[in-house]
Amino acid sequence: MNFHEYASRIGLATAIVMMAPALAQNPAAADSQVRAAVETVTGAIQADAAARGGDMVKITAVVRQQFLPYTDFERTTRLALGKTWNDATPEQRQQLFQQFQSLLVRTYALSLSQLREQNVKFQFQLGRQEAGDAVVKSRVLVNGEEMQIDYRLTRTPNGWKIYDINMMGAWLIEIYRRQFGDVVARDGIDGLLKYLVRHNQVPLG
């Protein structure tokens, strides 16, 4: 499976969860933070006629503005890069984080545009929870097909933040660690930056 297929499946998983209806919130709970993200993004898209109609620029802007506050994608970047993150200069780290976050935002936005008119049913269940880490499980029914998607969150001073997704038995961080490791081994850190920039320049839609 290539980079785009992995990204598409990961984005699809996130987008499905984003389409959930509003539920009662408990800000202290990890699953409630996922639900809050869903309500915020879905409500913003429905309130914007262009986004509701499939305008990718608008949908991407909504994801960036409304969904990112519920995530810790700097942690995602750091864990996905591993030793590469430690070897990078402060400037390279900032660029890697910005480009990787942009890649994730674009993937989520594209998936949202594909699912906005589909009939999606789901259930959330709080799984393993430790002092600083939690997993939220979800069962999703899309057009008669069922799948299970897990979400890992970390507790921060600002509450629980989403930083990893498990779909079809593979965590997002593990997938990108392999992808990025191959690029770095071949082209170095600057080569990975060019790789991410190139993918982020491909028009959506």
Rank of each mutant, 00 (worst) to 15 (best):
R93T: 02
S111R: 11
A134W: 11
L12G: 08
T40L: 08
F3M: 10
T107S: 15
Q94M: 08
P27K: 05
L23F: 08
A80G: 04
A49Q: 13
E5L: 11
F73I: 01
H4I: 15
A61N: 10
L110F: 09
L96S: 02
F67G: 02
Q101Y: 01
N119M: 05
Q94I: 05
W85G: 01
R52F: 07
R75M: 10
E130I: 06
A24T: 15
A29K: 13
T14R: 13
K83H: 09
L103H: 12
R75K: 09
K83M: 09
A134M: 08
L96A: 02
P27R: 04
F124M: 10
D150P: 09
R139W: 03
F73V: 01
T107R: 08
L96Q: 03
Y151V: 06
L23W: 06
L12S: 14
Q66I: 00
Q65A: 11
T84Y: 06
E130S: 15
V135I: 15
S111F: 00
Q118T: 09
G54K: 06
S111T: 05
T77W: 04
E146Y: 01
S32I: 08
A88I: 03
D72N: 12
A44E: 13
V136C: 02
E117C: 05
R35W: 05
L79Y: 07
Y151H: 15
G54A: 01
G132V: 09
K137R: 14
I45Y: 04
L103S: 11
M19P: 05
S138R: 00
F67W: 12
R106P: 13
Q123C: 03
V105P: 07
V34A: 14
Q99I: 00
L104G: 00
A13H: 01
L103M: 12
Q98N: 10
L23G: 12
M18Y: 09
V63D: 07
D133N: 15
Q125M: 11
T71F: 03
K121G: 08
A28M: 11
V41F: 04
K83S: 13
A50M: 07
F124G: 10
L79W: 07
Q95P: 03
R116Q: 15
I45Q: 06
S138P: 13
L96M: 08
V17L: 15
M18A: 14
T76L: 15
E130V: 11
A22M: 10
K58F: 07
S8L: 10
L141Y: 03
Y70M: 03
T89F: 01
P21C: 04
E146I: 08
L68E: 09
F3Y: 15
F67T: 01
T40H: 10
A13W: 00
V41E: 04
F97K: 07
T77I: 02
V34D: 01
A44D: 12
K121R: 12
A47S: 14
